[in-house]
Design a protein around this nucleic acid. Structure first.
Lengths: 362, 362
DNA sequence: GTGAAAGCGCTAACAG
DNA sequence: CTGTTAGCGCTTTCAC
């Protein structure tokens, strides 16, 4: 019987076995001392010192993959999002900051999965949940109810701004309808009557909710929204530019809207571009308001509706980690299925009362 | 001798052993079929089908941690950066997009490590390199040469905008001095003479290089920079606001600078805030130019110096993965130690020739 | 108090 | 072509 060759691993500085050998004890003892093992009652102080000393001398580093394999936990959460390669996603950045911050506080790493789109996501998500992450946050997922059964059930999931209920997936969102309503109600209260809503994609729940808020504000004020008052595209500056340009083209000679309520800040920025290019003063001639309160809004001093994006990220991370803990029997499972945070109006420099005389589109 | 209890793992849907049992073959056969094993020449078609069928029935998913432990590779790269909790880092976002994009193309995941600051980083980096990532990108690290020996040598590192040479670490950067020089030279060519440089932190190499470019442009034009022509703070809008406000306070009654060259776009945005608040027209009365060409610049139509941030991220990821491959004997090691990409001027709406009459600071 | 043994799931080597 | 064996580094019973 030949003694098994123990090939000296070159992959890591030192293993527990190395440390044990150096200290003249077993690897288990080393493990007990170096990693907060719950198993060992106590190791003799003298032994412990010897082990610590050996570890320092060999520059011992625990191996995360081995530990993960044994523990069934990687201490890493995933964050899945679509990331366009042409337009940087401020929305992502805000939420991500919250996620990574809260995760770090809980000793968890964050790995980001960039999706081309969500049909891609539905296909790839199961593959992500293969042990490299302990749980996954879905950012603004566009999943069909049909995709639900394909989602892995052994990995906790949390969604932010999910577009449909997914069984077993906690969803976090903000009061978008209420936020949109409050903003449009304020515009109406200031005297604006002709408000154009340049909306996001109709297949996105949040975009529809903003449209709903717009309509409710008119309704509750006893007013009727203008004909052609809502145009929809996607959530990008480019879309804002395109939609508004086209709208102005097709309504040439008619009355210029007094205000533009953009579906998000990026759209608002696109609208600002168009107005500026036409020499139309904001807010002197037309008011423009956005939605989200991303850094874009702050840098342009845009009047907007704030969604607590960073906080959504933080909460999502904390809930997710709680789910992971619970799955491993290390705590109670959070008993929420949905969490809705408030929105609020943010004052900027792009909103004022409507001018007295109406303006014609040239 | 008691038979070892095989506790049915509840952690994963199914293991290779499960699949093998179901298909009536060994786990190795299953491994060979399900994961592209190079070892086995061929498995009988009939067997292979049986295995695939069993895998599908059991919904088999390979376990990434087990695979990583055996293979010594996690297929994940790390991205370490400082992330302020008060101001969102557009610079980070741009580079990150490049990193994640290139990494994904190479089948690698990306995990982000958020550092409070780089002294923190020097301490924590070794701990990250414990097998959970195969290599690490350092974004704008501020490391002392002294920290070098603490960096792990078993994990490949790549830095972007590193502040000092680190042995064995490939560094990527842009021609910052040249970019700053080109911009200031253009300002001078337009007729500006009194250019205030609101710079970044002097301990950051890139900030110093921009100052150098500023000085060289004056020198080569045969001119002398104004006294008090450079003020330094950090790379944030807040710093830009504070520095410019203070500068204007302390120079009250003197001549207003004709142009402001900001150390980065965030600083430029801060300066724009201050000028706007004072009712000073940009660029009619004062020109403002930035550095980086982040999304902030684009949304404000800021004239700026473009650094190819996304490309820096892409290149860094590709180089890093090449290093990882090389370490595992799967390819040649890249033989570069430094990569410098060009910068270029970006036209915006915040630069014009100086006005004829000089302006006094009120 | 400490060590021996078994196993987390997968893979590389070698035997059959 | 397929199965057996050993081992990646760490942990967790369970004897001693």
């Amino acid at each position: 019987m030949t003694a098994p060759v123990k090939p000296r691993s070159t992959r890591h500085a030192a293993t527990l076995a190395d440390v044990g050998r150096e200290a003249g004890v077993s690897a288990m003892a080393a493990s007990a001392v170096l990693n907060g093992a719950k198993t060992s009652s106590r190791i003799a102080d003298e032994t412990r010192d010897r082990i610590l000393e050996a570890a320092r001398r060999l520059n011992y580093r625990p191996n995360a993959t081995a530990r993960a394999l044994a523990a069934g936990r990687m201490n890493t959460i995933g964050f899945a999002t679509t990331l366009s390669r042409t337009e940087l996603n401020q929305y992502f950045l805000e939420v991500f900051n919250g996620v990574i911050e809260a995760a770090a506080e809980l000793g968890q790493n964050t790995t980001v999965f960039a999706l081309a789109d969500w049909s891609d996501g539905a296909r790839r998500i199961p593959a992500f949940c293969d042990g490299r992450i302990d749980g996954l946050i879905l950012l603004a997922p566009q999943l069909a109810a049909d995709d639900a059964h394909r989602l892995p059930d052994h990995t906790p999931l949390v969604s932010i701004h999910g577009n449909c209920e997914l069984p077993g997936v906690i969803n976090l969102e903000a009061e978008e309808e209420a936020g949109a309503h409050a903003m449009v109600a304020r515009l109406l209260a200031l005297g604006h009557r002709h408000i154009l809503h340049v909306a996001g994609p109709p297949h996105v729940l949040g975009a529809r909710r903003r449209v709903d808020g717009y309509h409710r504000a008119y309704r509750e004020a006893g007013l009727t929204p203008p004909a052609d008052g809502v145009v929809a595209g996607d959530f990008s500056a480019e879309s804002g530019r395109r939609l508004l340009s086209r709208w102005l083209e097709t309504h040439r000679g008619q009355e210029m809207p007094q205000a533009i309520f953009a579906g998000n800040d990026a759209i608002a920025m696109g609208c600002l571009d168009v107005l500026t290019a036409r020499g139309i003063g904001v807010p002197q001639q037309v008011s423009v308001v956005g939605f989200d309160d991303t850094v874009l809004a702050r840098s342009a001093r845009l009047t907007t509706v704030r969604q607590p994006l960073r906080e959504l990220g933080q909460r999502a991370a904390r809930l997710l980690v709680a789910c992971v803990d619970a799955k491993l029997g290390e705590g109670p499972a959070p008993n929420v299925t949905t969490l809705v945070l408030p929105t609020e109006l943010v004052d900027g420099a792009t909103l004022s009362p409507p001018r007295a005389a109406s303006l014609r589109i040239e």
